[in-house]
Structure formats: C-alpha cells, structure tokens
C-alpha cells in the first residue's frame, strides 16, 4: 500500500521515501485508534522496504508532534472494566504498541522523526524508535509518566538509555521536566536542529541524502549500530504492568483527566 489515509494518520510513498503524518485531534495522542493505524503502517514495511530508502514521521497538528499515550482513553477504558481485567487489557495494548515500535526501530531503511512542538511520553518514544531526530528549535521533549505513578511504557527508557547517558535519563524521568530542542541537541537526543517551521524540510533534505547510499550497506550499518534492546523492552512491560495495578495510578489518571490547568503534564 503506497498511500493511506486513516482517522489518525496518513502516509504516502514517493520516490523511495515514505512520509507518515500524524493528524489526530487534539494532540496526536496515541490510543487504540492510532495504534490500529500504526499497525497497518508497520504491516506494510515488508512490501515497501525493497524500494524504500527513508521514512519521515511528522505531525500535521499545530504546536505538537505527539502528546503521548491517550491517557483519557486509558482512564475511561480502565474505569469501564472490572478491576481484575485491567491488567490484561493494558498488557495487550503494550504488547501491540511495542511490536509497532520494534518494527519501526528495525526497518532496513532510515527513519527520521521531524519534530516540532511538544514531543512527550509516547510521542517521544515514537521519535526514539527512529534513527534520526530532526527538531524545530521550538520543540520540547519530556517523559512525564512518573507523575502518574508509572514509567514510560512504549519502549522509551531502553531506547533513551541506548542513545544517551543514564544521568540524563534519570533527570528526565525523575523530574518529568521538559527539555528544549537546543539542550536536546547538545545532549545528543536530537541529531539536527532546524529553524522554526523547518523540521520537515530538513528531514526531507536528509532523506534525499540518505537515498544516495547503497541500501545493503545502510541496512547492515543500522543493524550494527542500533540493536533493538529486546530484553529491556520486555522488562519495561512487566514493570509498567506491575506499577499500573496500584490504586495511586487510577487516582493520578483521574486528576490528570480532570485538570484543565495550563501545565497539566506537570503536577
């Protein structure tokens, strides 16, 4: 499938490059609907890979790449089912999103996240699955999950640890603070800084450059440089599920869902 237009995202293959655009109101939250369409997207890699050199993931939403997992859906779904069944449901969701992230992580072509605005939680985890992050200078990154009593669940910690020093990972996780693009660039999280509104253009230019090189060498280099941390990813799912069963988590989710303040991501 060389093009697709769903309810939460769309993609188009053109001259060896797939452009995936997240477009789900209000802030590209990753819930069941986006997961289903990401699964369709990842399911097409096998067919598209031989004629693809790069894939760019960007957002059509103003001021945001992705705010992360759909916490409102998570809360309302959890409240609608018996307490004993919650864990089964969340584990199934995590298994599915991990399969998508792992597929994006391991593609033989080069994946580029073109980030502008807020890139939080699951949104940052999606960007981290990519090979290269190009960020608009107004982009901000954060892992605010600990405020809700759990850890990032879409593969974020193992992938952030793969790319950055553990001290930075601890700072981001323990404070939940947002990191600006310049700082993220200085730390090595962001590969290329772009001017305001220029991230997608820079990503396209990078994709064009990438396409000039031998695909076999490119795939071998990627496999060598960027191994998928499968064992830690499995462990992450277990830890998330263990934390999620605590009543503190539902209380924190309720507070978040009901919060209409200007900084709801930071308690």
């Amino acid at each position: 499938m060389k093009s697709f237009k769903g309810k939460t995202l769309r993609w188009e293959w053109r001259e060896g490059c797939i452009e995936l655009t997240l477009d789900h109101e209000p802030a590209n939250e990753i819930g069941t609907a986006m997961l289903e369409e990401l699964e369709i997207f990842a399911g097409g890699f096998g067919t598209l890979a031989p004629e693809t050199s790069a894939c760019i993931i960007s957002s059509a939403r103003k001021s945001v790449f992705s705010a992360g997992g759909d916490l409102r859906e998570l809360y309302h779904h959890a409240m609608s089912i018996p307490e004993g069944e919650r864990l089964k449901g969340i584990r199934r969701f995590l298994e599915r999103i991990h399969a998508v992230m792992n597929a994006i992580d391991a593609t033989p072509f080069v994946t580029i996240a073109a980030v502008h605005g807020a890139c939080f939680g699951g949104g940052l985890e999606l960007a981290l699955a990519c090979d290269i992050i190009v960020a608009d200078k107004m982009a901000r990154f954060a892992f605010p999950e600990l405020r809700l009593g759990f850890i990032p669940g879409f593969g974020g910690v193992p992938r952030l640890k793969r790319d950055l020093g553990n001290a930075v990972v601890r700072d981001l996780l323990f404070t939940g603070r947002t990191l600006n693009a310049s700082r993220a660039h200085a730390l090595g999280l962001v590969a290329q800084l772009a001017g305001e509104g220029e991230a997608l253009r820079v990503a396209r230019s990078t994709a064009t450059q990438v396409s000039k090189y031998d695909p076999v060498a490119r795939a071998a280099a990627k496999e060598f440089m960027k191994p998928v941390p499968h064992e830690e990813l499995r462990e992450e799912i277990d830890i998330f599920c263990e934390l999620f069963t605590r009543p503190e988590v539902m209380a924190a989710l309720k507070k978040f869902v009901e919060d209409s303040g200007p900084m709801p991501y930071l308690p």
């Binding site: 945001v64 605005g117 600006n180």
Partner: peptide
Amino acid sequence: DSLQTLEMLSRLENHFGIELPDYEVQ
C-alpha cells in the same frame, strides 16, 4: 493553554540562552 505556555517557555529559553525547568516556573 498548556501548549502555548510551552511555546512561550521555549521562546524565553532560546532568547536568553538558558534552561528554565518547568517546575521552577510552576
């Protein structure tokens, strides 16, 4: 709103060349 607050924070940090953790301005 929250996203505009973040935009303003980014603009201030870029202008002054500093890092201003969110919790310091909360």
